[in-house]
Each structure stands twice: as C-alpha cells, then as structure tokens.
C-alpha cells in the first residue's frame, strides 16, 4: 500500500445521504476476478445521467469526494473502494461512514475523513460556488481545507498510522504467528471443522 500523508485535488460535491455500495458500484460489475479496472463501474447508474456531478467538466478529474452522511452502507463489496480508487479518488469526506466500507478503505489507502455535517455543507458551498476548487487533505494534521476554510476530521489513530506508513495488515499479523499457534492449542475439541464427514 502507498503511504498517505497529504493529498490535494479537485473536490467533488455529492449531495446525497445513504450512498450505498450498490450505488458506488452495481452488482453486475462484481463478476470480475481482477483487482483493477473498476473505474467504469463507479456510480454507473448515476453517471448515465449527464447532469450527474462527475459528468460536469471540472469535477470529472476529481480526487476528493465530499458526500452526505452514511456513506458506503449496505453490501461489504470492497469493489466499491476499488472503483473509487481506480477512478482516481484518494479521499472521501463524510459525516458518517458505514463500518465495513471504512474498514475496506483503510486496507486500500483510500482515506475516509469523518467531518461534522456542517463542515461538509461548508465544503459543498465552496465547491459549488467555484467548481474545480482544490481540496487539501492533511493526514498528519487531520485537516481538510479548501480556499480559506479548514476543518478537522476524525480517523482512528491505528488506521492513520497504517496509512501514513503504508503498512500491510497480513505482514503485521504474521509477526504474531506464535501467539496464533498457541491460541489454536487451547481451542476446545468440540468446535466444528469443515472437513467433509467421513473423510480422514
């Protein structure tokens, strides 16, 4: 994973709450077995409407999405994060994120910056008044700014550290392989295994 410290890019105002992962990428795009190339599925249904924000010129090149509350609800599909990242987004700003989406984003280096809804609305105004305005997100300082407006955002310290360092979770966990093996010895015998019945 690429380390993340600061990012500056075109901010995209998405005035919708409850943006579920079926909207971020519909199920039909989930049949692929690759890990890249999901940008065509991003907001596929909404992008069919030419008035949709990502079809407007300065926003097309956006990399900081500023959305309404409860972003990423619903399905656990990590494809939603891949679609956003493949399109070019590095940051999503929202007042509330669904837990699984937030977790998935953290694994892929997509920053979920949780702001107050009033700050989101301030950002929306700025981005709508001057389309193409750059938004700067500073993970070290935990701030998001546009023009002369700056807001603080929340992110848990562990995810922040992993993003700043660009660390891979599996490698971190495997440092504790001995503890895992030790734990396994203490599991009760009655716990089930999936080995087919009758097999050795």
């Amino acid at each position: 994973m690429e380390p993340f410290t600061t990012h500056t890019g075109v901010g995209v105002p998405l005035r919708r709450s409850n943006v579920d992962t079926d909207q971020i990428i519909p199920a039909v795009y989930l049949k692929r077995v690759s890990r890249t190339g999901f940008e065509d599925g991003l907001f596929a249904a909404w992008r069919a409407d030419e008035t949709f924000v990502l079809n407007q010129e300065p926003f097309r090149a956006g990399s900081v999405l500023v959305a309404g509350p409860d972003f990423g609800t619903g399905s656990s599909r990590e494809h939603a994060v891949w679609a956003l990242a493949d399109y070019g987004f590095r940051v999503v700003v929202s007042a509330r994120f669904a837990d699984i989406f937030r977790g998935n984003a953290g694994k892929q280096g997509l920053l979920t910056a949780e702001c107050e809804q009033s700050d989101v609305e301030q950002l929306w105004k700025i981005l709508e008044n001057e389309p193409g305005t750059a938004v700067t997100v500073d993970l070290t300082a935990k701030t998001v700014s546009a023009k002369d407006f700056t807001a603080r955002f929340r992110i848990d310290d562990y995810t922040r550290w992993r993003l700043l360092e660009g660390l891979d979770d599996i490698a971190l966990t495997l440092r504790h392989a001995d503890a895992i093996a030790e734990f396994e010895k203490s599991r009760p015998a009655w716990k089930p295994v999936t080995t087919p019945l009758g097999a050795a």
């Binding site: 656990s76 990590e78 998935n104 848990d156 599996i170 966990t173 895992i180």
Partner: peptide
C-alpha cells in the same frame, strides 16, 4: 460479521482479524 476482500485474504492467511 461481514468483511471485505482484503480481510478475506487476511483470514485465509492467518485465521485472525485485527479488530477493535
């Protein structure tokens, strides 16, 4: 609970998950 694909890989590799 449901998990994303990176976590699926994590569980396949380690049979654990880091969680708060």
């Amino acid at each position: 609970f449901g998990i994303g694909t990176s976590e699926v890989e994590h569980v396949l590799a380690t049979q654990t998950l880091p969680l708060r």
